[in-house]
Amino acid sequence: MELANRPARARCLMAHVNKVHSVRTIGLVAQELDKTEDEITVLALGMDMEDGLI
């Protein structure tokens, strides 16, 4: 395992890379983008986890 060979400080820094800093509701996003909630829902359902889904 590569992580076992790294210093403890480096392992600690890596653990926080994917930390969530904010969450918004679909309603708020739709309002900010001047779209309907249904349009945002369809867009979100087509996203992969790498695209920012929680």
Results as ranks from 00 to 15, higher is better:
residue 47 M to E: 06
residue 44 A to T: 07
residue 14 M to F: 15
residue 14 M to S: 12
residue 17 V to D: 11
residue 52 G to N: 09
residue 30 A to P: 00
residue 28 L to T: 05
residue 41 T to V: 10
residue 45 L to H: 07
residue 26 I to E: 02
residue 22 S to L: 09
residue 9 R to T: 00
residue 49 M to G: 07
residue 49 M to Y: 09
residue 2 E to M: 03
residue 44 A to F: 11
residue 14 M to N: 11
residue 11 R to Q: 12
residue 34 D to P: 04
residue 19 K to P: 00
residue 52 G to I: 01
residue 3 L to I: 05
residue 6 R to G: 12
residue 2 E to W: 04
residue 26 I to F: 00
residue 32 E to H: 08
residue 19 K to C: 04
residue 42 V to S: 14
residue 16 H to N: 05
residue 2 E to I: 00
residue 2 E to R: 13
residue 52 G to K: 15
residue 37 E to K: 09
residue 30 A to T: 01
residue 52 G to A: 06
residue 49 M to C: 04
residue 26 I to M: 08
residue 26 I to N: 03
residue 49 M to L: 05
residue 24 R to F: 13
residue 31 Q to K: 11
residue 27 G to K: 15
residue 36 T to N: 02
residue 26 I to H: 00
residue 10 A to K: 13
residue 17 V to I: 15
residue 53 L to D: 14
residue 9 R to H: 00
residue 53 L to I: 09
residue 15 A to E: 04
residue 18 N to I: 13
residue 2 E to F: 06
residue 50 E to M: 05
residue 7 P to L: 15
residue 8 A to I: 09
residue 32 E to Y: 08
residue 11 R to S: 11
residue 47 M to K: 12
residue 33 L to H: 02
residue 53 L to K: 10
residue 37 E to S: 08
residue 24 R to Y: 15
residue 28 L to Q: 10
residue 40 I to R: 12
residue 16 H to M: 08
residue 46 G to K: 15
residue 22 S to Y: 10
residue 16 H to A: 10
residue 40 I to Q: 11
residue 5 N to T: 10
residue 13 L to T: 07
residue 48 D to Y: 01
residue 51 D to H: 06
residue 45 L to T: 06
residue 54 I to V: 09
residue 19 K to F: 06
residue 54 I to E: 08
residue 48 D to A: 05
residue 33 L to F: 03
residue 40 I to F: 01
residue 6 R to I: 14
residue 43 L to G: 04
residue 22 S to C: 08
residue 53 L to A: 11
residue 22 S to H: 13
residue 53 L to Y: 12
residue 21 H to K: 15
residue 41 T to D: 13
residue 54 I to Q: 12
residue 11 R to H: 10
residue 21 H to W: 15
residue 12 C to H: 15
residue 22 S to I: 06
residue 21 H to A: 14
residue 17 V to R: 15
residue 8 A to L: 13
residue 51 D to F: 00
residue 43 L to I: 02
residue 52 G to C: 02
residue 43 L to V: 01
residue 25 T to N: 04
residue 1 M to H: 07
residue 48 D to F: 02
residue 10 A to F: 06
residue 22 S to P: 00
residue 47 M to S: 05
residue 30 A to E: 00
residue 43 L to H: 07
residue 32 E to A: 12
residue 12 C to M: 12
residue 30 A to N: 02
residue 48 D to E: 08
residue 40 I to S: 09
residue 50 E to I: 03
residue 15 A to R: 10
residue 23 V to Q: 14
residue 12 C to S: 14
residue 12 C to W: 14
residue 22 S to M: 13
residue 5 N to I: 12
residue 30 A to F: 01
residue 15 A to Q: 10
residue 26 I to P: 02
residue 12 C to I: 11
residue 36 T to M: 01
residue 43 L to P: 02
